[in-house]
Structures are given as C-alpha cells and as structure tokens.
Amino acid sequence: DLAEQLTPELLDSPREESLQFVSELKDPSCACAVDVGTVWWAAAGCRELRVVTASESAVSLWEPLPPDCWAKIHTWHLAEIPVIQIVPLPDTCNLVCVALGELEIGEIRLLLYSSETDSFKHSLVKTGNITAVVGLKDQRLVSSSRTMQEQQLEVVLLSEAGGSKDRQTLMPPEETVTAFAEVEGMREALVGTTAGNSVVIWNLKTGQLLRKMHIGYSYPASICHRAYSDSGLLFVVLSHPHAKESESCGSPAFRVVAFNPRTGRSTGVMFCCLPPGCAGRRGDVWDRTGAAVLTSGAVAVWDLLRGRCSALLPPGPAGRWALCRWAAGGAGLLAGSHDGTVRLYRY
C-alpha cells in the first residue's frame, strides 16, 4: 500500500535498484531485538562476513550456511546492563563492539573469541555518560562523554585481545557532540555534529579542534553519518531525525551539505525527502546510499548523490521492520523486526 502511495518521481527506476531478498535468520530465543549488524570473522584460515544480532540481554554471532541459511555460533549474555546498540567497526576482524546503558550509553564492551583460552569472552573498553560513539577504520573507536564539569572526547586504539593499545584525547567544543563520522580517504580527519547544530572537524593525530561551522537553523538536531573530502570541500551526509514536515520541502531524510573548511561557509548540495506522509527514524549510510526505517514499518533507501528514494521495502512477513543497517563490504541491507527476524537484501 505504501509503495502505491509513492509518486513516480520518487521511484522512477525501482527495477534497476530494488532490493533482492538473499537470506533470512530467525532467533526464536530473542524476545525483543534492539540491533543488527555484520562483522568480519576469520576462522580456520578463512575470513567471512557474519551477522550479529542483539537483544537487551544477549548478543549472538551467526555464520552463513550455504546456500541461504544462518547458524548461531555463540551468544554472549550481558544481563547486568541492557544492550542499546551494536557499534560497527569498519575493517576490523573478530571483534564485536556493543554499547550498553539505560537512557544513554553507560558502557562500551568488546565481544570476542580468545584463542588463548579457547573461549568467547567480553571486555570493558569505556564507562561514563557517553553521548556518542563510532567505530573508525584501523581498529579505532571514538566517543564523547560528559561529567558535570566537562566533556571528554577520546579515541581508543583497540587490540585484538579486546583491550586498548593507545588512547588519544580530542579537544572538545563548547557544545555537546551528538555524532561522529570519519572523512573518507583522510585517515587523520574526523567530523562531528553538536547539539548546537554545528559541524566540527578534528585532527585525530594531534587531537586539535580545527574548525566549527554552523549549519543554520532550518533543520535542527542534525546528525552526521559520513563525510568525503573532494576538491577542497568537505561533503557531509546529515540526517535530521527530529525535523518537522514542511509543505514546500517535505520531511528531510538525508541532506548532503558542502562545507568550505577554510571559510566555514556551507551550501546544500542534495536533499533526500521521506516519502509523502511518512515519518522516519534514525537511518544508516553506506557509501553513497542511505536507508531508514519509517514509522509505517517499511524501510526506504535513497541514492544520496541523485537525491531520490530508490527502493522501498514494505513491512516483512514478521510484521513491521524496526531496524535497518548496511552490511559491511557492500553485502547488502539488513532489515530486522523486533521478534528476532533478520533478512539480508542485495541492493
């Protein structure tokens, strides 16, 4: 029904870029799924992509069984504090990172297999009142946390054994940092968004705060997802989970904004709307593609360079979709419902 309501402009070539069902897994022991993701896992000389599912009290690792099944290999039980999200660690092997807490993140833990003890285990990486956490390439994790007096931004270099090899502090801006995104192709550059609707840039090597650039007041509470540097400009993909629908523009799902880091000036480059009449939740971005679960229970996919909705996944056999995440390595889109059903789609 939702697909029929979409105007032709939003889905002008759905056949070319639609989502193709690949495989499904179902965790019968999952009372309420909170997140889904993928992780590269090396075992017996072979590296493969595995699915990770999380409920409030347990995180499970699934291996692919050809042709199109998944088998649960291990479940880490984390009963003391609820799991809030899986934190993807790009390019990292054999490590699953999870954030735990009540209303906000209070702990970040690594889940892993220890060959020394021939057992699965988990280890604590950070505690505190954590407002944002993101995994970066080269086994790094960046987080913002706050005390009554100050905000602390920290990059942790993770070890394969689940500990930290090194820690680097970043200079905090005055406003609370709400999200981070690494700059594609620039290992030492990091961007973030703040509660005051600014984009900030750091040098990860030195910890310097290089620039704070205000986004404007049109779309408050912007969240950064990805950033790309090209031709002297910084292109940042933003979502606006709390923006209100307007008659002239609709509801923004994702925007691409170009910043000149030298002057701090910016201009909107691309604008992706939610389908008419839909509201959305926080989305996920991979490469040049965005996805978000709509409150209707459908998943929408956008081509961020063309600024259009390119695919729509209606609610699945298990009911409304509640989660969507891009799988690592271009493997496709994971859609999950609260009952523990996860489906992988090729995009």
Binding site: L210, G232, V269
Partner: peptide, 23 residues
C-alpha cells in the same frame, strides 16, 4: 558550488587548519 558562495577554496585545507589551530 562556486567560490563566490563558499569563499576561497584550498586543496590543502586540512594541513593549513592543523598548522593554524591551537595545539
């Protein structure tokens, strides 16, 4: 995007801002 909208553009913005920012 043009320089008139965004001001002078530098391909080495990251190195330049790192040299100028407080340590």
């Amino acid at each position: 995007c043009s320089e008139s909208d965004l001001g002078p553009i530098s391909l080495n913005w990251f190195e330049e801002l790192s040299a100028e920012a407080p340590p």
